[in-house]
Nucleic acid binder design. Structure first.
Lengths: 152, 152
DNA sequence: TAAGATTTGGCAGAACCTGCCAACAGAGCG
DNA sequence: CGCTCTGTTGGCAGGTTCTGCCAAATCTTA
């Protein structure tokens, strides 16, 4: 991973459908080595994939929620049970393990408040072993970018 | 936005570099109308763009932090000042406006703890008007997907 | 300085995209 | 029921892009 690779990554974070020719021009390479570097970045896992960035409201999911959760017990079985259940919930787009007062933060998208209540009551609480839940709704978004900062 | 458009969106969230031919086959259309729908979704803003999903650690940014911030005052000028400054910080990938005890949640990526301290002291606090900051480090990630849930 | 290893650039065949036009399907109306 | 109008679909051809290969160039190391 050299500075050329990071240039390629940042260009593809800004525009993931850029053609290899444009990408090559942007990073001052010819198409062949540029494509080879891209394939290596994909195969090594540095680039996990490409995806469309979609307006959740336009799609029909106007409500985004950050849900912070603390478990009652942290033994291996309860943790694995919680995590494998959460992975299966389609409305959970992200689930991070945290330092601090809560164990997890989930990013959840739902079509309306009823769906959110249903999610908490019939999916999260039914996992069992939940000590507490903190719900924070997203009002608006000031900034959202996929492009990493340049580094030395 | 009909069910076909949502199929297209979900397919491109799962694989943003899928060729139009594969996409057309996946949603049971021929390439022409499929490409036209895609262009309309882009022009209408439903699809904001495409981007590479990159492993932050492999890139050289192993530390991800959620920072929750409360402002001292919420008059138009202070809010605009805060938001425009935050938009200019490259290490801030997301900034959401929240309900609840804090006003904002930022997702920040940095190469090490020194860089994080520098970010808080020399960028955030220097904005002025910050009432409180709550820092939560991300230990690990259980789930991260770009694909929205299917809706009726 | 020379040998070895890695990376680069260019080329040709295959795949893909793009913009156009004709054909089809569905809603509304006499 | 049949007609028209509107919106959507499918197919085609020229232009662009990708892909896999080989030779040339660059960078290390001794």
């Amino acid at each position: 991973m050299d500075s050329k690779d990071r240039q390629i990554i940042r260009a593809l974070q800004a525009n993931g459908r850029m053609t290899n020719q444009d990408l090559a021009e942007k990073v001052n390479l010819s198409p062949s080595p540029c494509l080879r570097r891209l394939r290596i970045l994909e195969e090594s896992g540095a680039i996990r994939g490409f995806s469309a960035d979609v307006d959740a409201k336009a799609y029909g999911l106007p409500i985004t929620v950050f849900v912070r959760i603390r478990l009652e017990r942290h033994n291996e079985e309860d943790v694995r049970r919680f995590e494998s259940r959460v992975m299966g919930f389609d409305e959970v787009l992200e689930c991070h393990v945290l330092t601090g007062a809560f164990d997890y933060q989930l990013r959840v998208v739902v079509p309306d408040l009823d769906a959110y209540e249903d999610f908490i009551r019939n999916r999260i609480h039914r996992i069992g072993g939940i000590a507490s839940i903190d719900t924070t709704f997203v009002y608006g978004t000031v900034k959202k970018t996929s492009v990493f900062p340049a580094i030395a």
